[in-house]
Amino acid sequence: MNSNHVDASIDEAAALWVVRLASGEMDAAEMARFRDWHGLSDAHRGVFDRERRLWQSLDGQRAAFVSATPAPRRRGRRWTMVARPRVWLAAGAVAATLAFLAPGMMIRLRADEMAGRGEVRTVALTDGSTAMLDSDAAIAIHYDGQERRIDLLQGKAWFDVKHGDQRPFRVAASGGVTQDIGTAFEVDRGAAGVNVNVTQGAVRVRGTASGPGMLLGMAERARYGDDGRLVRLKPGMVSSMAAWRRGLIVLDGRSVEEAIEEIGRYRPGYTLTFADLSAAPRISGIFRIDAPDEALRSVAQMAGLQVMTLPGDMMVLRR
C-alpha cells in the first residue's frame, strides 16, 4: 500500500468522523472508537484537527445561509466507517450542511473533549489535573505559558486541580470565569445560566471576565446568567454536589418538569411530556444514572403520570 493511499484513507476517515461528531448521535461506544482512531498516530490527529478547523471556519458564514428552523436531531442511528474513493467529497458536503443546520454542531467541533449521551467521562489534563464530564458535556482546553484555561462549552464538569503549577487554572463559561484557589469544584452550564459548586477548597467566581469577584469556600454555591449578574446561593451538601460523578442523580425539591429534564439527559432517546404539571408535587429522591427509564417511571408514579415507550428509545409521559 503506497503512502498516498494511506493518506487518502486517513483523510476520508477524518472527514467522516467530523460528520459523526457534528451529528450529535454518537453514543459512548462510538466515542470510544473515535478516540481509539484519533490516538493511532500524529498523522491521524493532525488530519482530524485540519478537517475540524475547516468546518469551524464555516461558523461565521451560517447567518448568510440559515433562515429556517434548524432540522431536528435524530438519535439511535448507527453509522459504520467505510473508506471509499472520493468519499471525503460527499462527507464534506454533508458537513457543510450540518454546519448550517444541525443544533450544537459548532460546539461539538470546538470541543477537545466531550462525553457521549449517558456517559460520565474522566479526562486527564496535561498538568496533572482531572476533569470529569457529565452526559453530553463538552470542553475546549487552552493551556499556554500564562494560564491553564478550560472553556466549558456545554453541560456539567467537575475539576480536581493539580497544584504546584504557577499558571492560574480558570474555567470560562457564558462570559464568566471561575478561578481555582486550591480546590475541587463543579461548573454547570445550562440554558438558565451557570452554577458553580465548591466541593473542596475555594474558588473566585466572576460573572464577567473583568467583573467583581465572589469568593466561595467548600459547600458554597453561586450562579450567574448571560447578563453577568452574580448571585450567591444557599450553601449545599458536598455529598450531593456533582453526584453524577458517583453515578447518581440527586433531586431535592425539584419540579416534575425539572426532574424529567434532568433524568432524560441520560437516556439515548427523546423524552416527551404531555400533561399540565402546574399542580404536581415537588420531587426529591436519589436515582441511578445507569437506570434512567426506571427513574422516570418512579417520577411518573409520584406525579400521577402514565408512561408509554415507543420505538427509537422514545418515552412519553402523559395523564
Results as ranks from 00 to 15, higher is better:
V203D: 02
Q200F: 10
R221V: 04
P292A: 06
I286Y: 02
I260E: 01
A242N: 01
S278W: 05
G201W: 01
D252A: 14
F274M: 14
K234C: 11
T273A: 03
S278Q: 13
Y270I: 00
I283R: 03
L248V: 09
R254P: 06
R265L: 15
L296E: 00
A202D: 04
S284C: 12
I249A: 01
V196A: 06
A242Q: 08
E262Y: 07
L230R: 02
V196Y: 04
E261W: 10
R297D: 13
D290Q: 12
P281V: 11
A291G: 03
S284V: 10
E258P: 00
V198W: 06
F287H: 00
E220L: 02
V196I: 12
S255K: 03
P281W: 05
S298P: 08
Y224D: 01
G193F: 00
D227M: 00
I289H: 01
G211R: 05
I263V: 15
G213T: 09
F274P: 00
A279D: 14
T273I: 09
T208F: 02
R206E: 08
S298R: 15
S278N: 12
E257A: 15
R245D: 02
A222N: 04
F274H: 12
V194D: 05
G193N: 07
G201F: 11
G264V: 05
R232Y: 08
G193A: 03
G236V: 08
E220W: 02
A279T: 11
N195R: 14
G228C: 06
L277N: 12
E262P: 04
K234A: 15
T271E: 00
S298C: 10
G247P: 05
S298Y: 09
V250Y: 01
G213H: 01
R229C: 11
A275Y: 02
R229D: 11
G285D: 10
A202G: 11
G228R: 01
